[in-house]
Amino acid sequence: MSDLLAQVPVTRLPPEGHYGPAGTEGVRARALEGLAAATLAARKGGTGALIARLTAAGLPLVDGPKVLFHEGLTVLGTGPGRWLVFAENTTGPALLAQLRALAGDDVALTDQSDANLVFELTGPAVRDALAKGVALDLDPRAFAPGDVATTVVAHVGVTLWACEGAPTYRLAVARSFAPALLRWLTPGAAPFGFALSGTGRG
């Protein structure tokens, strides 16, 4: 265990602030607030029809580990015929209604707005920090913006996707596992200078 978090209860997110050598900021992490979320699953044999319907509605869904962004929606492929959708500035029930309107009755929709916390990770050393637990090749040649991976980090399941621009990733983690995930990330990112925000006083 790192001394860095010796005073932080294991049940809490580490408090926001700067960890590591002063004046360095190789990794920045920010907890994203106020996202609604839902899982979207096609009915048996209905993936093709669902994709066709959503594509016609301007949302060219892909049946694979890819992310697509559409009018405030972030749609992540998490399994065959399954997607995890995040939406900004809305509520779970409103997101379900929006998706229902888009996808019709023949899909399974489940509110997950309280199930996950989402973090945005960026900075020049973000890949080096993630490499301390993510068993995926994060080189842009192997994991480019638009790619999604559901994987496990330090015994914690995460869904990770690469965003455009300077190395930037977003990562969804189950709410009850978020403290454990940040307890893994913080000491690993601290050597590069780690700025954590959005977690309040922990």
Binding site: M1, V10, T11, R12, A154, H155, V156, S176, L181
Partner: peptide, 21 residues
Amino acid sequence: GHHRDKDFRPTRPTPTHDWAQ
């Protein structure tokens, strides 16, 4: 590696953990 002492394994708090504390 990281998995020692209090971080030997993840700890999951319940939604009412802080209240219970």
